[in-house]
Design a protein around this nucleic acid. Structure first.
Lengths: 169, 169
DNA sequence: TTGATAATACTATAGTATAACATATTGATT
DNA sequence: AATCAATATGTTATACTATAGTATTATCAA
């Protein structure tokens, strides 16, 4: 049995460093793929990295300070589509929201844990599940392209002190 | 290795019987739970049973013949909420759509296979996955409430003859 | 028949996502 | 440097999905 490990951010983790690392990884990733890491894309990713909650597109829009004006939805969607296509962002289907990927190495199969109270989400490598799904698909003659695996419940912090207070962070 | 079994409806299955069985099961389920199986709820379930594709709410609305007029979205949502609450209907998160449950016995853990071409969906019992998810959640101190497991790809029929024709059904 | 509960009808509005087209930026090629 | 193709952006409009809120009606037990 593996050590207990919370995939949720520690309460006093170095958040600045965490954002910086995400941006540097993105930088490198774009470099190596030879794609452009433009201002829009950069800003959207920064906003997502700054928050450990998946953000909805309109939430991103509101936080987006764009020389006074606000961007249109499609501009955000385009940036997200790009970021998702190279694995820097994940879409959480059960929340219609987007989460910055905080695990540099690509996962074979990912389970997202979504806290229903504080709304934070964590990604967990779940390679075992890939085999099960692949088998089930194969046995029913289904050609598997992709999968969505999301769990909803309470994160470690909210489990212990599920007060309304925590819902705000 | 289990026998190959497609969880998708056979091309020439007895669809009338399949709808009827679904309605009878619903009837019995409501009876035993002592809840009302009203006209609205009945109609929505019938429409879902008649189609092996998950239907969006507005698609249901359009098909809903309601003495000439059309019902409002909230009426459909209410019926769906009810049907879902007693396990007669499932929501497919990655399609924002609803599927009639065609397996009478409650599943411990369900994987939905969604065909990206013909849009049909199948539910597959996936008990093995429950243990994996439960374990992963436990190890990260997460209190699990529910989960979403959906696979996207091509159903057996569309894998073999993925012509545009099939997309219509 | 009355009163509590559950369900419905209706109107309005909030939230999520894409289409379509014009403009601008980038970077390779001449 | 000038041109061109490819990529990305700006903008407007619209489609799709979901919920809130309130008034009304049906159901059933006391």
């Amino acid at each position: 049995m593996p050590m207990k490990k919370t995939y949720f951010p520690e309460r006093q983790h170095d958040h600045e460093a965490c954002i910086l690392a995400g941006m540097e990884h993105a930088e490198a990733e774009c470099e190596s793929r030879n794609v452009r890491f433009t201002e829009n894309r950069r800003s959207v990713l920064e906003l997502l990295l700054a928050d450990h909650r998946p953000l909805g597109v309109y939430e991103i829009m509101e936080q987006f300070d764009w020389k006074g004006r606000r961007p249109a939805p499609s501009q955000i969607y385009r940036a997200l589509e790009f970021l998702e296509s190279i694995g820097l962002v994940h879409r959480i289907e059960s929340s219609n929201a987007y989460l910055a990927c905080n695990r540099p190495g690509r996962h074979r199969c990912t389970l997202f844990l979504v806290c229903e109270l504080c709304k934070k989400a964590a990604e967990v490598e779940a390679g075992q599940m890939q085999d099960v799904i692949t088998d089930l698909a194969k046995h029913s003659g289904f050609e598997l392209h992709s999968q969505v695996i999301e769990a909803r419940g309470l994160c470690p912090e909210c489990t212990h002190a599920p007060t309304p207070d925590e819902a705000g962070h």
